[in-house]
Design a protein around this nucleic acid. Structure first.
Length: 329
DNA sequence: AAAGAGAACAACCGCAGTACT
DNA sequence: AAGTACTGCGGTTGTTCTCTT
């Protein structure tokens, strides 16, 4: 049963790679049109390294599509914004920055960005301001849950708009909503990883999400919000009034609990219903950018604190620096 | 110029999910 | 079905570089 034993590490080299080793590895992969089995690669290539070390060296350093050099302002902003949504999910963050590795982003965060946030009075763990006693407000609401709620709310808004648009214009989704960052992000790698959060991955043990996951409630949240989106989209299309009572009834009917509804209600009104709460159609497009709505930085997405000394870390700057989210999809 | 401190980054470790036998 | 390897991921460590005194 099982496979052959893993390579023993006796006699294998460790530590920094030499240029000769790099060359051997690159040549081997190029020659064979890929790395093949990492386990057998070192022997076949003539390297005194374990396969894991080779894989790491390749993926983090030698891969031809890796972008070397300092991070641009846009990249650093994006990392902070994505970290606010995803937490320490470096691979998911890296998937939105072509050419950057999760390791590189992790290092940048730990050496630069985290400290910058702390200096600015922002808790890098949850992206909320520190209070005088060192704690953070809204401590009862888990960051992960809020992230999830934000994702879901953004998706609801986008899908509602999509539904409305398609009902009005009868045009295919991708043609009509190509500019819809929410849906594109939602269906991107980041969105996928986020959607999978309750199902797998490492969730902080103290997070209500992990508790909910173990009891199956996380799926309920997702399912609930999906149903809500369908309900609200239907209402939007039919021109029905989506008042709080309707929302509450739907949540209540699906979950049987008030908790999820409270999470939902705690979200920014601008996100889920648009800025004008008196509007009869609460799903009207907002004038805010998608990222403004998607993110809820305590500084209202004002990242001036970050820009102040950004030039100390970025050597390449863009002529048109924008706060808009750059979605490389 | 030398020593120490801190920053930067590459590499390693261990865990978890998946694939394979 | 069970055991093991493979792979990806995040946390951590170790080494090198840079700056300050």
């Amino acid at each position: 049963m099982g496979r052959a034993p893993c390579c023993d590490k006796n006699g294998l080299k460790r530590g920094p790679w030499t240029t000769d080793e790099d060359e051997i590895l690159v040549n081997y992969i190029n020659k064979n049109n890929g790395h093949g089995s990492w386990r057998s690669l070192p022997q076949q290539a003539g390297l005194l390294r374990c396969g894991k070390s080779c894989r790491l060296r390749w993926t983090n350093y030698l891969r031809p599509d890796i972008k070397r050099g300092p991070f641009t302002e846009e990249e650093q902003k994006l990392i902070i914004q994505l970290h606010g949504m995803l937490g320490n999910r470096w691979a998911a963050i890296a998937s939105q920055l072509p050419g950057r590795t999760d390791n590189e982003i992790k290092n940048l965060w730990n050496t630069h960005l985290k400290k910058r946030l702390v200096r600015s009075g922002i808790n890098p763990q949850n992206h909320e301001p520190f209070t005088s006693d060192g704690s953070t407000p809204r401590a009862s609401a888990s960051t992960t849950t809020r992230h999830m709620a934000q994702w879901e709310s953004a998706r609801l808004e986008a899908e509602a708009r999509l539904s409305r648009d398609s009902s009005q214009f009868n045009t295919p989704f991708l043609e009509k909503s190509d500019s819809d960052y929410f849906l594109r992000l939602w269906y991107s790698d980041v969105g996928e990883s986020f959607r999978k959060l309750p199902m797998s991955g490492k969730t902080p043990s103290d997070s209500p999400i992990s508790e909910a996951s173990s009891s199956g409630k996380c799926r309920s949240i997702s399912a609930v919000t999906t149903e809500i989106s369908h309900c609200l989209m239907g209402s939007a299309i039919m021109g029905a009034d989506q008042d709080d009572d309707i929302e509450y009834k739907v949540f209540k009917s699906v979950t049987g609990e008030d908790m999820v509804y409270r999470i939902y209600k705690s979200m920014d009104d601008n996100v889920i219903r648009g800025s004008d709460s008196s509007s009869t159609n609460k799903l009207d497009d907002s004038s805010e950018s998608p990222m403004d709505m998607l993110l809820d930085y305590p500084m209202n997405n004002d990242m001036s604190f970050f820009e102040d000394d950004m030039h100390n870390y970025a050597t390449s700057t863009s002529a048109n620096v924008e706060n808009d989210f750059i979605c490389p999809l």
